[in-house]
Design a protein around this nucleic acid. Structure first.
Length: 212
DNA sequence: CAAGGGATTGGCT
DNA sequence: GCCAATCCCTTGC
């Protein structure tokens, strides 16, 4: 292996096999690294949302096990990728609570490495390749698609890995309702890093609202 | 097997 | 602010 880990170490499965709400918070500040023939893109995660299995009407696995949500039943630390709106992919890190399915949607990140490749993969995104703002932009920038579903992020040899990154100062942590979720819209399971340019605009009723 | 709608985005009004 | 793009999964008949 000639690769070098850019920042921190690859996270272990036992660090991820926790309640998705807790996992969501702990994923802020970690880094997701994608390596391919095209090159490497590495992002610092700054916005995530928890989806917690059988109790959560907004979760994909709320109604039980199906072919699509299979990966959400574990093991933890694997990548759950799904296709939405006929054109976008979204990516999650699988977490568990007492053996119940769950996952954390990755909504946004700051591009730390591979800006040019990021821009090539998502030319229309604003930010000139420096930010991945929105879950579908994030997957595009990292080159994630259907084939990556189920991939183990804790395997050091995996093309997609989760790295420990730098801790986020506690005073920068924020939480609020999840974006674009019709069910359980008051549940504050969206977590983000205050002040990051990559974080989505606050939304209500599924639409963007101007900042006051 | 048909139909509804979705954890979105970017462009246009 | 509004809406089209565009596929697939899930549900229900």
């Amino acid at each position: 292996m000639t690769d070098e880990v850019a920042t921190g170490r690859v996270l272990r499965r036992d660090q991820l096999a926790i309640d998705p709400v807790e996992l969501a918070l702990s994923l802020l500040g970690t880094e997701l690294e994608s390596r391919s023939e095209q090159g490497t893109v590495r992002v610092r995660l700054v916005e995530v949302e928890a989806y917690r299995g059988l109790d959560d009407p907004a979760s994909h696995c709320y109604r039980g096990r199906t072919p699509r949500n299979e990966v959400m039943w574990g093991p933890a630390g694997h990548l759950y990728v799904y296709f939405v709106y006929g054109m976008h992919f979204c990516a999650n890190v699988v977490g568990l609570r007492d053996g119940e399915p769950g996952a954390v949607l990755l909504r946004a990140g700051e591009v730390l490495e591979g800006r040019d490749l990021a821009r090539t993969r998502r030319p229309t995104a604003r930010g000139g390749g420096l930010v991945a703002k929105g879950p579908a932009v994030l997957t595009s920038v990292l080159g994630l698609e259907r084939a990556h579903n189920g991939l183990d992020l804790t395997d050091p040899g995996s093309p997609i890995r989760l790295l420990s990154g730098e801790p986020v100062p506690p005073e920068c942590l924020r939480s609020g309702p999840r974006v674009g979720v019709a069910a359980a819209k008051e549940v504050p399971w969206r977590f983000w890093v205050d002040g990051s340019p990559a974080v989505s605009a606050y939304r209500r009723n599924g639409r963007a609202r101007p900042r006051s």
